[in-house]
């Protein structure tokens, strides 16, 4: 591809991205320095033209950031989001690794079907899946009924509206995100490598830790980040499954935006959340491009 057509294509695609991805974030950044006010839009302009002045005067305020960093509501929201997301990531890894490993070791002809069934939940509405999960964990739901029937507990466990409930909801929502990259990296491991390990005197369990796990590391990192990043900002799970005292930043943002209508503060909180996630996102991006390089 060359010449005018190529330049036109690049320009058009770049314009689209600038409009729907870059511009919105710049506006969030801008509004995070504004102050809330009654009106439409409900915040102060960043630049103001004084009568007769040649240049506009900048009216940036750091008040929102100062508030975020001093108010325990926000700090707690960020911290508990990170904590719950980390717990959920770890649990998803523990559940997803044996599953992905079994998928990758399954006979060749089963694998496409297993893959489709592992991904299918990702495409069905997360709202509906959370709703289904609530149905399972309800006081009078099947999970409690099973435990009661087994005699493990005497009274129904209140799992909903607890942190454990939220973590379980996050795991249930994001498990496919973990299984997929794990499967992809496990499946790429040449079976001859495990045979070679066995041939050289290594037992199967040893080979799993010495060969399989190190080679699956890129998939493990990718899977953990793919669960962790969206889980930190998750709204539906904490909103529907959390108690009134559970704080997650996604839910706090939503409340700030819709209920309190403090858009500048919500913008500042978004900017901080993005900054929090920049590190993991960059690592994820590196992993992706490294793998793309290896493939080419």
């Amino acid at each position: 591809m060359s010449g005018a057509g190529r330049r036109l294509l690049i320009a058009a695609a770049a314009a689209w991205l600038a409009f729907v991805v870059l511009a919105p974030f710049l506006i969030v950044l801008k509004i995070s320095f504004a102050e809330v006010m009654q009106g439409r839009p409900p915040f102060t302009p960043l630049f103001a033209w004084a009568e007769g002045a040649l240049l506009p005067s900048l009216r940036a305020s750091l008040a929102n950031y100062a508030l975020l960093l001093s108010d325990s509501l926000y700090l707690d929201s960020y911290l508990s989001s990170l904590r719950l997301a980390a717990l959920a990531t770890l649990s998803a890894l523990v559940i997803g690794l044996p599953m992905a490993h079994a998928m990758a070791r399954a006979p060749q002809r089963w694998r496409p079907a297993l893959l489709v069934f592992a991904v299918l939940p990702f495409w069905s509405s997360s709202l509906i899946r959370v709703y289904a999960w609530i149905g399972i964990l309800n006081d009078d739901g099947p999970f409690n009924a099973l435990l009661l029937w087994l005699g493990v507990i005497a009274r129904p466990l209140a799992i909903l509206n607890t942190d454990i409930g939220i973590v379980s909801g996050l795991v249930y929502s994001y498990l496919p995100f973990m299984v997929l990259p794990l499967y992809a990296s496990l499946e790429r491991i040449d079976p001859a490598l495990l045979e070679a390990a066995s041939d050289l005197g290594c037992r199967p369990a040893g080979a799993f830790f010495k060969i399989t796990l190190p080679l699956a590391l890129p998939g493990i990192i990718a899977g953990c980040l793919l669960v962790f990043i969206p889980a930190v900002g998750e709204f539906v799970v904490p909103d529907l499954m959390g108690g009134s005292d559970t704080l997650m930043i996604g839910k706090t943002l939503w409340t700030e935006f819709f209920n309190n209508r403090d858009w500048p503060l919500a913008s500042a909180a978004s900017v901080l959340l993005i900054l929090l996630l920049v590190g993991p996102i960059v690592v994820l991006e590196r992993q992706g491009s490294k793998r793309a390089e290896e493939r080419s």
């Binding site: 040449d190 001859a192 490598l193 045979e195 070679a196 390990a197 041939d199 050289l200 005197g201 080679l215």
Partner: peptide, 20 residues
Amino acid sequence: LPPYRRPVNMMFQSYALFPH
């Protein structure tokens, strides 16, 4: 004897070198 207990070693066609 399982493979890991046999006094036999193999050079694989693909070499199967451990990449890590």
